[in-house]
């Protein structure tokens, strides 16, 4: 089965995020008030062939840990979606 996977990579709490801080500082100039705690990360989507969701999550977790994130400064969360018979990777539109 093919599972769609979403890996979100975020800077660890306490690691300075100059991109997030710059975005946050720019918002009042555009008239947006009350926006705080802006943090910039990455979202990485891919497809995994695996016998079941648990196996897909294990594999995706390894990919997230060994390549997609640097544990010194980042953390990653892995979300495995329901198997998609039409999933072929890339940027499919519904």
């Amino acid at each position: 089965m093919t599972f769609e996977v979403l890996v979100e990579v975020r800077l660890l709490a306490g690691i300075a995020d100059p991109q997030g801080a710059t975005i946050e500082r720019s918002l009042p100039a555009l008239g947006f008030a009350g926006v705080s705690a802006v943090r910039v990360g990455k979202a990485i989507r891919f497809c995994v062939d695996a016998p079941d969701a648990a196996a897909a999550e294990t594999l995706a977790g390894e990919v997230a840990r060994r390549l997609l994130s640097n544990p010194v400064i980042e953390e990653a969360t892995v979300t495995v979606c329901q198997p998609s018979p039409t999933a072929t990777g890339g940027t499919q539109q519904p």
């Binding site: 690691i15 300075a16 100059p18 991109q19 710059t22 640097n70 010194v72 400064i73």
Partner: peptide, 11 residues
């Protein structure tokens, strides 16, 4: 080597 290199403080 330990640690990591982040974006410069001033971007």
């Amino acid at each position: 080597l330990p640690g990591a290199l982040q974006k410069n403080r001033g971007l």
